[in-house]
């Protein structure tokens, strides 16, 4: 991630961006729709998915394979919803309730992420198995957290507390998300903790021999990354989906996973990827109707594009330019027998 190759990275990502841009732009142009409002409409999705993908990228840069993302994301969505409903019933103003809900989602995300990073680094545990178990735990907890709130929101509150969707809030949050991305990029490339996170992902054995604590480093990366994933889940409810039912958010974590992967976990490039996906997600039905496809195909589209994006990333020179951390998903155990 040396500074001088940044230009190269952008060039490398261009074909990917072009494909997606074409995918979104063609039907829009054909319809002669108001492009400005179409773009404005996709900003909430952009914020939610960008934050989650950004967090995922930071987390995986430290070398822990992140298969828990979808479960934690799903749980965060439910947690934000539930907190917002409870606070609204307690008399808080809707926006404030939803805002606190988003933060609570971030805290829950951070808690689970730190747990994942800790056990996979301190113990010689398969990252895949640990991540998957946490994914199921997240899936399992989400309805329990969300359903009572859904009942209350329907029968007591008779509404869902949400964030404001006025331009000030929407653009403000987008600005914060973008600034966070730039800040994280700077931290990762230029500070000691950033170097340590990359070192833990590249070669934890050497990193440890150099004298840093791999556990501490990965826990910090998890704290940063999973707070963002949780907040992304919170925004998903409070600004993008604006509703909750059992199963809400399931699958979105995987889309964030694909967004991050297709941008090589690069904080800045992830913006492009997230914007493209936000466009597809927000306008999938519109896209499908333009292409004469059914609603089910429209729902399938984001997942299909996610898979294709992963394939494009791995099959093209992008992979070499934005190579994944060498030790990603490998068990870190210092005591391995050498003879």
């Amino acid at each position: 991630m040396a500074g001088k190759s940044v230009k190269g990275l952008f060039l490398g990502a261009l074909p990917l961006a072009a494909v997606f841009a074409a995918l979104t732009a063609i039907p829009v142009a054909a319809q002669g729709a108001d492009v400005g409002s179409l773009i404005y409409a996709m900003i909430p999705a952009f914020i939610a998915y960008y934050l989650a993908a950004l967090g995922h990228g930071v987390f995986e840069t430290s070398g822990v394979l992140n298969l828990a993302i979808d479960g934690v994301f799903t749980l965060s969505v439910a947690a934000a919803f539930s907190t917002a409903v409870h606070l609204a019933i307690a008399g808080y103003e809707d926006t404030l309730a939803a805002g606190i809900g988003v933060l609570v989602a971030g805290i829950i995300g951070a808690f689970l992420g730190v747990f994942l990073a800790f056990i996979t680094t301190k113990l010689p545990i398969s990252h895949g198995a640990a991540g998957l178990s946490l994914m199921f735990v997240g899936y399992g907890l989400a309805p329990w957290v969300g359903l009572p709130a859904a009942y209350m929101s329907q029968n007591i509150l008779r509404r869902k507390p949400l964030l404001n969707t006025d331009p000030v809030t929407v653009y403000g949050l987008m600005g914060v998300a973008i600034l966070l991305g730039i800040l994280l990029y700077f931290v990762i490339t230029n500070t000691k903790i950033g170097v340590a996170i990359r070192a833990a992902g590249e070669n934890p054995h050497a990193a440890s021999a150099l004298g840093i604590s791999v556990v501490k480093t990965r826990v910090i990366a998890a704290l940063l990354g999973y707070t963002l994933i949780g907040i992304g889940g919170g925004i998903y409810y409070a600004l993008y989906a604006q509703t909750w039912q059992e199963g809400s958010g399931m699958g979105s974590g995987w889309i964030a996973f694909a967004i991050s992967l297709s941008a090589g976990r690069h904080p800045i490039l992830t913006m492009i990827s997230a914007a493209v996906f936000a466009g597809i997600l927000k306008h999938k039905y519109f896209l499908a109707s333009e292409l004469n496809l059914s609603r089910d195909v429209a729902n399938m589209l984001p997942f299909l594009v996610a898979l294709i994006a992963m394939v494009i990333f791995m099959a093209t020179p992008l992979k070499r330019r934005l190579a994944p951390p060498s030790a990603l998903g490998k068990i870190f155990f210092r005591e391995e027998r050498t003879v």
């Binding site: 500070t191 903790i193 170097v195 070192a199 590249e202 990193a207 021999a209 150099l210 060498s326």
Partner: peptide, 22 residues
């Protein structure tokens, strides 16, 4: 035991406890 994709300076930085995390 150096990390290949980091620079020499970055490797040293990791080793030196006197430099703080930020």
């Amino acid at each position: 035991q150096l990390i290949d994709r980091l620079t020499v300076g970055e490797n040293m930085l990791l080793s030196l406890a006197k430099f703080g995390l930020l």
